[in-house]
Design a protein around this nucleic acid. Structure first.
Length: 431
RNA sequence: GCCCGGGUGGUGUAGUCCGGCCCAUCAUGCGGGCCUGUCGAGCCCGCGACCCGGGUUCAAAUCCCGGCCCGGGCGCCA
């Protein structure tokens, strides 16, 4: 019977099991060989006393190379001296595919490897349980997000990633050729999820890649990332902030509950944030930063050093920075009526890291066109979007949350590249 | 993109300041040998490297210039 290593227990003692996996380590003591077999779920020790296993099986174990893929069939023994409490005395060891040596990096981590080396040989890096745990947790986060949003009436959608020119201006787009036309990779599902509000879906979410052609080179930026986006009708920015903080807490709770093993592999102690998250106004944030000697001219985005001192003052917690200057938010952000210099907007922070940002959107056609012009955008290129605002667009709000950033902040990863299987950055296009 | 630091066996490093003592250190790995309770197994023998191009010099891993790449910080990031 085929089992994963984690499934081997008392009920298997004295019985035959089949395990598949990789040879993690070989400890050859001469007349006694220990093979440590690794699979997705963990390890199991395969023990070969010369006199108790078939001679040809013993020979296979003598010669097997690390990281080869094997099938092991044998009897399970309870053994206090074995690392997992159980070991297998094999009847058959079949090498399904032999590994070449030397390895491009050490899966056992006896010798560290630099991130760049690891990413060059990512498939091998991902064999490390500690690294694979990141992506097992990522899966749980996504599951949790889908459950939470579905329970709150959101419908999952997909919008085009190949788009025509003129999205929102500002960030750089990757140009691609689309038959006889020029096209771009989408930087955000923003315009499409808003259009869907005009369709009457009321609440939608999308989990999909976004592409940004910025030449940034930092530990928290990728040129291709996964964005969790929502759009919600008949609510303001406060409404979607509530959804966002509720979602974050739910994700933490679910990961805490379902990923105990993986958190342990990673040596991460998860602290579940409590509701509601603190909210500070942009004005207050600027004041705090300036008290610490970081000047931020009103109307501009908070600089990295300003966010760092802010995090030192507030703590490494989840909090919102709300009510940003209209001039540093996109054209679709709705200004306050009584003070149009400030808009109905927020960023979700974890310490100094921006996790998400959102706004209440302008839903009136004339105001929207006016706002575009004020930002130097030409409404003509946005007709497919603007049309949706002429025939009954409800008031609506939404946000976008960076999945990799959520993952990295949750697991204390120092580099966002750790949070994606095959990162795309300024210089990396392979693997 | 800017500033600073860096690039040495498969991997991670010492050596670079002050050129020769370096046909280059250590660990891990790999190959071989010994070994029946390892769990970072141990012991013995062996293998394997100075990013690329140019320059200075009797002599360059070491100094200078250019390129590529990496790390940190910043910028950019609706």
């Amino acid at each position: 019977m085929r089992k994963w290593t984690s499934e081997i227990g008392d009920e298997d003692v004295g019985r035959d099991v089949t395990v598949y996996g990789w040879i993690h380590e070989v400890r050859d003591l001469g007349g006694l060989i220990f093979l440590i077999l690794r699979d997705r779920e963990g390890f199991i020790q395969v023990t070969l006393p010369r006199k108790k296993v078939p001679p040809d099986t013993f020979d296979v174990a003598k010669k097997v190379k690390r990281e080869s893929v094997v099938k092991v069939v044998g009897i399970v023994k309870r053994e206090p001296k074995a690392p997992q409490g159980y070991e297998i005395t094999p009847r058959v060891i079949e090498v399904l595919n032999e590994s070449v040596v030397p390895l491009p990096l050490e899966v056992t981590e006896k010798v560290p490897a630099e991130l760049d080396t690891r990413l060059d040989h990512r498939f091998m890096d991902l064999r490390k349980p500690r690294i694979q745990a990141i992506f097992r947790i990522r899966h749980n986060i996504l599951q949790s997000v889908r459950n939470f949003l579905s329970e709150h009436g959101f419908i999952e959608v997909n919008t085009p990633k190949i788009v025509s020119t003129a999205t929102e201006g500002g960030t750089e787009l990757f140009p691609i050729s689309y038959f006889e036309k020029e096209a771009f990779l989408n930087q955000s599902p923003q315009l499409y999820k808003q259009i869907l509000m005009a369709s009457g879906f009321d609440r939608v979410f999308e989990i999909a890649p976004i592409f940004r052609a910025e030449e940034h080179n930092t530990t928290r930026h990728l040129n291709e990332a996964i964005s969790i986006d929502i759009e919600m009708s008949f609510t303001d920015h406060h409404g979607v902030m509530k959804i966002l903080e509720g979602l974050i807490v739910r994700v933490y709770e679910d990961v805490f509950e379902r990923c105990e093993k993986f958190l342990k592999w990673m040596d991460v102690e998860l602290e579940i944030p409590s509701l509601p998250f603190e909210r500070i106004r942009y004005d207050e944030a600027v004041e705090i930063a300036e008290k610490r000697g970081e000047e931020v001219p009103w109307g501009e985005d908070l600089t990295t050093p300003a966010l760092k001192v802010l995090a030192e003052e507030i703590g490494d917690i989840h909090y919102f920075i709300v009510d940003w200057p209209t001039e540093c938010k996109p054209f679709y952000a709705m200004p306050y009526k009584e003070n149009p210099k400030v808009c109905r907007s927020f960023d979700l922070m974890k310490g100094a890291l921006e996790l998400a940002s959102g706004t209440q959107r302008i839903h009136r056609y004339n105001e929207l066109v006016e706002s575009m012009r004020a930002k130097g955008l030409n409404p003509d290129g946005f007709e497919f979007y603007l049309e949706a605002f002429r025939y009954g667009m409800p008031p609506h709000s939404g946000w976008g949350l960076g999945l990799e950033r959520l993952l990295m902040s949750m697991l204390n990863l120092k580099n966002i590249r750790e949070a994606t299987l095959f990162p795309r950055d300024r210089h990396r296009l392979t693997p």
